[in-house]
Amino acid sequence: MNRPSAIACAAALLLLAGCKPIEPWVKPYEREKLADPIMALERDPVSGSYLDHVFELREGARGAMGSAGGGCGCN
């Protein structure tokens, strides 16, 4: 191992030694509102994936919206 790599490894070990677990800033008992079904990111998957499919067929853009595609349906 060359010298710069050894220094980088030593620095990384020192940093890791100083780490402690991240304290959750929202405690489990404070998540009542987040657990409400109206806060679900995808409340009805069958409906959401259908609507994504409709948009994907009529637009040039695709992806990053959660649908998994599986056909063309465009002819």
Partner: peptide, 17 residues
């Protein structure tokens, strides 16, 4: 893991994820 099979008269789609 999953598998999706799409079937049209003029288009066959097989997707694995």
């Amino acid at each position: 893991v999953g598998y999706i099979d799409g079937d049209e008269s003029d288009y066959l789609a097989r997707t694995a994820y």
